[in-house]
C-alpha cells in the first residue's frame, strides 16, 4: 500500500511540473501516453471513474424500479375496477371493429415520460397500421394523440393528420372526472364517424398487448342497427320516457366514449408502470454486469502493476547482491 501511495505521489509531482494543463481524467491518460519519466503503470483513474458512474446509474434505475412497482399496485386495482365500466357497453353495442366508415379518428394513448420499454412505439405502430386498414377513396383518418411520446413519434411522418394533442394527463392521479372533461373536449373538437382508441391493455407486469376499442357515432349506430346484426337487437329494448331512439343512442355513445377512454387511459398508465418496472430491472441487471466486468479489469491491472514493481525490486536487489 505504501508503495502505491508513493507511486501516486511521484506521478502527481511529475505531472504538475511537466504540464500546466488541468488534470482531468482524459488529459491524464494522454500525458501518460506521451510517456513521462517514471510513470510506468497504466492509470486506473478512468476505470475508477467509470465504475463510479455505472454504480450511480444502477442506483438510479433501482430507485425508479421501486417507484414504478409501488405505484403499479394502486393503479392496477383501479384499472381492474374500471373494466366493469365498459364491459356492459360491449355487451350492448358490440365493438364494431369491422364497421367501415368514412371519417375515422384514431386516438393514440401513450405516456408523457420515457424509459418504459416499447409501449409507446407499439401503440404508435398499431395506430399507423389502423390508418392503412381504414384507408381508401373518400376516406380520411385523423389522429388524436394523448401523451408527449406518442406525439413525438407521430409528428415525424403524419403531422398533417394530427387533429389534437393532449399531455400532462397524469400529473394528478387519474380520475374519471378528468377523463370525462377530456372526452368532452374531443367530442366537441373532432368530427368523426368512428373513434378507434389504441392503447396497451394491461394483462400482467410483462404482457401488455396493444388493443383497439371502437366507438361509433350515434348516426352510424342507428344505421347499423337498421341493417340488423348484433346492433339490430337494440330494438328489443324498451325505451322509457319520451326520448327518441336517436337521443338515447347519442347519450349512450357519448357515455360509452368517456368510459372506454377512462379505461384505456388507466390500462395504458398501468402498462407504462409495468413496462418501466421491467425495463429498469433489466437495466439495473446490465449495470451490475458492466460493473463486474469493470471491477475485474481494474483489479487485474492493479495486480499487474504490483507484480511488475515487485519483480523490479527483487531483480534490483538480486543484482546488487550478485
Amino acid at each position: 500500500m505504501a508503495m502505491a501511495a508513493l507511486r501516486r505521489e511521484g506521478r502527481r509531482f511529475l505531472l504538475s511540473s511537466a504540464s500546466s494543463t488541468p488534470i482531468t481524467a482524459r488529459s491524464a491518460i494522454s500525458n501518460e501516453e506521451s510517456c513521462l519519466f517514471g510513470a510506468r503503470s497504466i492509470s486506473t483513474q478512468i476505470v475508477r471513474n467509470r465504475m463510479k458512474s455505472v454504480r450511480n446509474i444502477q442506483k438510479i434505475t433501482k430507485a425508479m424500479k421501486m417507484v414504478a412497482a409501488s405505484k403499479l399496485r394502486g393503479v392496477q386495482t383501479k384499472t381492474e375496477n374500471s373494466r366493469g365500466l365498459w364491459q356492459p357497453f360491449v355487451a350492448l353495442l358490440g365493438d364494431g371493429f369491422s364497421v367501415d366508415v368514412k371519417k375515422n379518428v384514431v386516438i393514440t394513448v401513450s405516456s408523457d415520460k420515457g424509459l418504459c420499454g416499447g409501449i409507446n412505439s407499439t401503440s404508435v405502430k398499431v395506430s399507423k397500421a389502423l390508418t392503412r386498414v381504414y384507408s381508401g377513396p373518400e376516406k380520411e383518418t385523423k389522429y388524436v394523440v394523448l401523451g408527449e411520446k406518442g406525439k413525438a413519434q407521430l409528428v415525424r411522418d403524419s403531422k398533417n393528420r394530427i387533429e389534437l394533442t393532449i399531455s400532462e394527463l397524469q400529473k394528478n392521479p387519474l380520475n374519471y372526472t378528468q377523463v370525462a372533461v377530456l372526452a368532452d373536449d374531443i367530442l366537441k373538437n373532432v368530427e368523426f364517424d368512428a373513434l378507434r382508441i389504441v392503447f396497451n391493455k394491461f394483462h400482467s407486469v410483462v404482457s401488455f398487448p396493444p388493443t383497439v376499442s371502437t366507438i361509433l357515432s350515434p348516426e352510424i349506430v342507428e344505421k347499423e342497427s337498421e341493417a340488423g346484426g348484433r346492433l339490430g337487437d337494440l330494438d328489443l329494448y324498451e325505451i322509457e320516457g319520451g326520448e327518441t331512439k336517436s337521443e338515447v343512442l347519442q347519450n349512450l355513445s357519448e357515455f360509452q366514449f368517456s368510459c372506454v377512454l377512462f379505461n384505456a387511459v388507466l390500462e395504458n398508465g398501468c402498462s407504462e408502470l409495468g413496462a418501466r418496472m421491467s425495463a429498469m430491472d433489466s437495466s439495473s441487471k446490465n449495470a451490475g454486469e458492466m460493473l463486474d466486468r469493470l471491477t475485474l479489469t481494474y483489479n487485474r491491472t492493479r495486480q499487474a502493476s504490483i507484480t511488475t514493481e515487485l519483480i523490479e525490486i527483487i531483480s534490483g536487489a538480486s543484482a546488487l547482491e550478485g
Binding site: 387533429e163 389534437l164 394533442t165 399531455s167 400532462e168 380520475n175 370525462a180
Partner: peptide
C-alpha cells in the same frame, strides 16, 4: 380529490400545433 382536472390540450392546423390551452380544475367549464 377525485374531481381534480389537469391536462393541456392543443389543436393542430396544417401540421402545426396551436398554442396549448391548460384545463385545470374546472370540470364545469
Amino acid at each position: 380529490s377525485r374531481e381534480k382536472v389537469h391536462f393541456t390540450i392543443s389543436k393542430w392546423a396544417n401540421g402545426k400545433p396551436e398554442k396549448p390551452t391548460i384545463r385545470s380544475d374546472s370540470p364545469d367549464q
